[in-house]
């Protein structure tokens, strides 16, 4: 099962009245100032509105210059990972009512990646780490004329890590990554796991070698921030542990 937000016994839809909520948004525009500032916006919200709805209300009705990424708006494209009340979440998957709308809700860019403007960060370093771990099936020999067979059990072995949407919520929640941007980070390791534990793959030892680097898995301090942050409910820390274990048990 994938993650749901930790709401206390959510009330049925339609029963939550409209309310007023203040978003305290971290603003930064290098064309205007080198300094980032906080700005408060107060909007009317409906009971089931998400943080993304509130951001849209600000952008569409109040201040068009507020800048953030979004696309699918229901938690599958991974565009809108932001820090809400100090925790990494997807803005489109976080209902306002679940993050204490009685107090101002803080919304900031995710940490550890250079801020481009307002809530937008430069994702290139994140994707560069991803690309480095060979995130693709490696096979040798002739291609089969039909599909490769894989038992349901073998398929289940790496199911959890196939769910990753590359939103960077995990990597940018990691204290090791904050202080050392060279660290591969949880998302890259998750995507390595997805192939290392795929019975069809033959590139495991190469990937393990890459992750055995000083900026690899051994930098993980098992703080579990990544697991908490993952909007897809992936057991990220467990996946990292499994990669560490594979490194010890598999000869490469």
């Amino acid at each position: 099962m994938t993650a749901t937000l930790e709401a206390d016994a959510p009330a049925p839809a339609g029963e939550i009245p409209s309310f007023t909520v203040t978003l305290r948004v971290r603003r930064f525009n290098p064309e205007v100032s080198e300094e980032a500032t906080w700005e408060d916006f107060t909007v009317e919200a409906h009971g089931t509105d998400r943080v993304l709805d509130a951001l849209h209300k600000i952008k569409w009705d109040m201040d068009g210059s507020l800048t953030f990424r979004r696309s699918c708006a229901h938690g599958v494209c991974g565009s809108d990972a932001v820090r809400i009340n100090g925790r990494n979440r997807l803005a489109c998957k976080t209902l306002l009512k679940d993050v204490n709308p009685d107090k101002p809700i803080t919304v900031e860019p995710i940490k550890g990646l250079p801020v481009v403007k307002d809530l937008v960060v430069d994702m290139e370093p994140f994707f560069a780490s991803y690309r480095e771990i060979m995130p693709f099936l490696v096979t040798t020999g002739n291609e089969p004329s039909k599909e490769r067979y894989q038992s349901p059990e073998d398929r289940a072995r790496f199911d959890d890590t196939t769910k990753c949407i590359l939103c960077a919520a995990c990597t940018s929640s990691c204290p090791v990554f904050w202080t050392d941007g060279q660290y591969f980070g949880p998302a890259a390791i998750v995507n390595a796991h997805r192939f290392i534990f795929d019975s069809r793959d033959e590139g495991g030892s190469q990937r393990l070698e890459i992750l055995n680097d000083k900026e690899g898995v051994w930098r993980c301090r098992t703080t579990f921030n990544c697991t908490e942050a993952c909007p897809r409910g992936i057991e990220v820390t467990k996946a990292i542990q499994e990669v560490k274990r594979a490194m010890i048990t598999r000869a490469f």
């Binding site: 693709f136 039909k146 599909e147 490769r148 894989q150 349901p152 398929r155």
Partner: peptide
């Protein structure tokens, strides 16, 4: 097209015999 994707690594659900 489906076989192409499987060979590229797509993790399809499997039958008990291991087929797509």
């Amino acid at each position: 097209s489906v076989l192409d994707l499987e060979r590229m690594g797509l993790p399809f659900n499997r039958t008990p015999e291991g087929k797509i």
